[in-house]
Design a protein around this nucleic acid. Sequence first.
DNA 1: TTGTAGTTTATAATGATTCTAAAAAAGTGT
DNA 2: ACACTTTTTTAGAATCATTATAAACTACAA
Lengths: 132, 132
Amino acid sequence: MKYIEKLRNSGLRPTKQRLQICEVLFNTDKTFHFTINELKQKITKQANNKISLATVYNTVHAFEKKGYLKQIPINSSETYFDTNVTDHHHFYDLKEEKLIDLENSDVGPINILKKINGKKIKSVEVLVKLED
Amino acid sequence: MKYIEKLRNSGLRPTKQRLQICEVLFNTDKTFHFTINELKQKITKQANNKISLATVYNTVHAFEKKGYLKQIPINSSETYFDTNVTDHHHFYDLKEEKLIDLENSDVGPINILKKINGKKIKSVEVLVKLED
DNA sequence: TTGTAGTTTATAATGATTCTAAAAAAGTGT
DNA sequence: ACACTTTTTTAGAATCATTATAAACTACAA
Ligand SMILES: [Mn+2]
Ligand SMILES: [Mn+2]
Ligand SMILES: [Zn+2]
Ligand SMILES: [Zn+2]
């Protein structure tokens, strides 16, 4: 399995549950956005397997800490995560409540002119809200 | 009172509670960011008055719908609101968990090149995360 | 003043997320 | 394989921001 090493190298034991989650999250060309509950459903279907909700939370947070996932800041009752951890931006379709990737090349370069003393920029994220 | 008319023109009855909230939110030169609970505390202190938490929620949502407030998309357990409803952006200091305004002039012009069929852009918001 | 719609309020309900602690699984050394 | 330690999983409970409920209150116009 190709994810066993990835997990071990991260100091995470390659458990059955984590490997299943890796399959769902990373065994695809396309990156995607998801909520915890969407992910849980995918795992249940794809692996035809029960998994505890707590484990999904635990694993997603562990992967986020390792840099394999990131949260998308958005005003929604559920937290959205992204398997695309490169610098990029998002459309948010307010009616459909769906996220769409905006590659860096789809947005002109962003120049933050203001500086805050003693702080450095960790990320720059653009959220473009869409309406009909 | 200068807010009575503003409320009436918005189709909102100028109640004691709404006027108090207006004083706290709008009777200042500076705009600011707040959570519901911070706002409730301010009202309680400044007006030396009890106000129901439900009323604070109701009023903030009513003002948001009227365009007098906006939500700031950020991953925080509490929702942040902004009395600055002009187009502008934010620093988010991850350690202090504080928002800092970034005027449009502090950010170069943002050009969204990608178009989504049948949708138009409602807003473009930049969130710049800061670390030490 | 009286009627009505709008508002406030205490409290309950909701729901996403986190916590808990016991059972299970993984890793290590023998 | 076995014994032992550490990590992980899990069901269920707890937390907490937010929303819903419904009764009391208020603004306002006829
Ligand atoms: Mn969240
Ligand atoms: Mn929220
Ligand atoms: Zn994305
Ligand atoms: Zn602001």
